[in-house]
Amino acid sequence: MSEQEEKPKEKTRRDFLKQVGIVGIGSVLAGSAIIAGINYDKRKTKGARIKVLTAENELLEIDRNDATKVGKFKAENLSYMQKQAREGIKGKRWVMVIDLSKCKNARKCMSACQDAHHLRPEQHHINVLKMQESTNTAPYYMAKPCQHCDNPPCVAVCPVDATYKRPDGIVLIDNEVCIGCRFCIAACPYSARVFNWTDPIRAEEDKDLVYNPELNVPQKKGTVSKCCFSADRCREGKLPYCVSACPNGVYYFGDENEDAVTNGTTKETVRFRKLIEDNAGYRLMSELGTDTRVYYLPPKNRTQPFKEEDKPEAGEHIGNNNA
C-alpha cells in the first residue's frame, strides 16, 4: 500500500501520463484509476463525470471514481477486479525478452517478485536457474518466469476456468475460483506454477485487502499461484516488478503489436523483432508447441563468466556433476 502512495511522486509516471493521454489509451488509465480508487481511497485521479440518481430521487453529477467507492461491499469490488483481470488491456500483446548474456545471477528479480506477490522464500514466480544442456556445452544462468504460452497446456486442463488466458496474452489465475486440484502444475512443462501448501506468509496483514487477480494478492491457502507478467503494473504503464528490479539489463518487456520492448534497467526502448533477429533469439522448448510469449537471447559474449561454484548444480540435471 505504501508503494501506491509514493507513486504520484515519481517523475516517470507523469511523463507517462502525458504520453498515454495523447496516444489515446486514456481509457485504460481511467480504468486503473478506478481500481486504485476502490483499493485506496486516498488516490485522487480525475475521471469522467457521470449522472447518478440517489435514493432520494435526486439527480447528481459526480466524479466516476467517487461513484465506484459506493461499492463498499468487498464482494462487489472483488467481482469488478475479477472482471477487469479477465478483460486484459485492449490491443496489447505483451512480450518479454530475457538476455541470457547479461544475467549474473543477481536474483534481484526473484526478491522483487516475491515481495510484490507476497510469496514465501521457496515460492518462485520467477526462478533463476543454473543451466547446462550437456557436459561440454556452456553453463549459464537462466531466469525463468511463466512463459505465458499462446497455447497454454495449464489453462487447457483447468476444470473450473480458474486459470485463463486473456486477450493480451497474459495467463492469470483467479484464486477465488481455484479448487486446488493442481492439474495445471502437472501440465506445465516449465514448472512455472507454485501452490500455497499452507497459509500464505502475509495472510494476517492481507486479510482485509480486496483480492486482485492481476497481482494475485492476497495469496490463498490451497490454491495455485503463478507469475502474472505483473498485469497490475502493465495496466499502470509500468514495467513488471522483476524487469525493473534487474540491475544488469537482462530484461526487456513490451508490446508485440507495437514492435517495441523496453529494457528494465536502462529504460531503453528497442524494436522487438530486430532485437530477436540480431541476437538469434529463441523460445524455451518450442518443440512443445506452446507458443510462448517469453523470448531468450543466447548467452553469448557474456559480461561475466559463469561462476565456478555454481557448475556442479548446473550439471546435476543432466546427470553430470562436473567432477
Binding site: 526473484m110 521457496e122 518462485h124 526462478n127 533463476v128 536457474l129 543454473k130 543451466m131 525463468k144 512443462p189 516449465y190 514448472s191 522448448m285 548444480e313 548446473a314 546435476e316 540435471h317
Partner: peptide, 10 residues
C-alpha cells in the same frame, strides 16, 4: 523429474 532443473527450493 520435470524438464527444467529443480533449484532454489528446500
Amino acid at each position: 523429474h520435470p524438464f527444467l532443473p529443480i533449484q532454489n527450493v528446500p
